[in-house]
Nucleic acid binder design. Structure first.
Lengths: 191, 191
DNA sequence: CAAAATAGAATGAACGTTCATTCCGTTTTA
DNA sequence: TAAAACGGAATGAACGTTCATTCTATTTTG
């Protein structure tokens, strides 16, 4: 097994176990076992558990952004762009439930709060295209004139909730329902 | 200090600490100290930590339902009832940030998932008035014809997200913004 | 003064992390 | 080229800490 293989195995195992059991339900020993690796080996690749958690988040976020931007063009009308991003995001979560559950764990932890804070208050690129789209929409009076944060809440709050309900089996989302949910999110933010 | 006083102190301390630090960040010894009580004393009132957590949830939920139903009448028009419940709920969260943060901790844990499952699949009264309102709204074609779960997501997803952002200091919600958020939630679910 | 309640020390399980040791592919030596 | 030496990757037992829970001596109550 090559060097990066082991690292990847650790990341995969951590994603699976933390998504299922939470940060505190997934001890390093368990992650090591699932990865087919000695407990100490993890520390060759990650300084400690916090670093592993943060790095895993970074990788997931990156994957998602790449997926969202496929076929996305700032030349399209605002509503169309919104529907594209929303649909792609919801579809991604449904197709990758482990990653969704991991993100939920992350956001609902001190890591996640700190991450959002640094994202709002300062630099951090990443989801620049969301900000870009929403700011343009507000300035063109296509979206409600509300603080950006609240527009995000209106747009993504339902999306997250619906993804969770699908993944937990409380509802089954097909293409039609997905489209209708994203339309409804649009109804919430549009002027 | 009377018997029930101690119990109440334990509940209060647990609410504060778990809201701030999470279930795992609030050890029983810390809760005992904050309550001004011996560690062992907690076990006179609660069989174990899980029971304390569940009981605390029950009490918070009960308080909220009581608050929401104040001035609520099923005789009012559907939209008005929706705005009443939504506004009252968001106001409650803002006025009681510790309880809100506690609920977040609870919902994002195995407890919360199990709780929702048993609520959807079976008996459990409690928020019957939400279900009642939404079912009536759908049957009268005032709300979108979507599964009840998704309507809840559309209505409360943004509400939760906005409450969180306010409490974390990412935005400051005044009466006007609260009204506009609830209106926007209505835009999301209305036909 | 008997019984219930309380406090906090004691307990044992579980955790993240460390580290002395082993393993193994590569390089050096003769 | 065969054998020896080397170095870094990998290991997992062991450590110190933290936690929920239990135990027990003491205090409070009626």
């Amino acid at each position: 097994m090559s060097k990066t293989d082991k690292r990847d195995e650790v990341v995969r195992a951590a994603l699976e176990l933390i998504a299922e059991l939470g940060f505190h339900g997934a001890p390093m020993a368990m992650i090591a076992e699932r990865a087919g690796v000695g407990a100490g080996t993890i520390y060759r690749y990650f300084e400690n558990k916090d670093v592993l958690i943060a790095e895993l988040f970074r990788e997931v976020e990156e994957k998602i952004y790449a997926d969202l931007l496929e076929g996305y063009s700032t030349k399209n009308p605002i509503r169309e762009r919104f529907l594209h991003l929303g649909t792609a995001l919801l579809r991604y979560y449904i197709a990758n439930p482990l990653e969704f559950r991991y993100l939920e764990q992350f956001y609902n932890s001190p890591f996640g709060v700190a991450h959002r804070r640094s994202k709002l208050l300062g630099s951090k690129e990443g989801c620049y295209f969301f900000r870009e789209l929403f700011e343009e929409a507000v300035s063109q009076q296509v979206m409600k004139d509300l603080p950006l944060v609240l527009l995000f809440d209106l747009a993504f709050g339902p999306l997250f909730a619906a993804a969770r309900d699908h993944i937990l089996g409380f509802v089954t989302l097909d293409d039609l329902l997905i489209a209708r949910i994203i339309e409804a999110c649009w109804d919430g933010v549009k002027r």
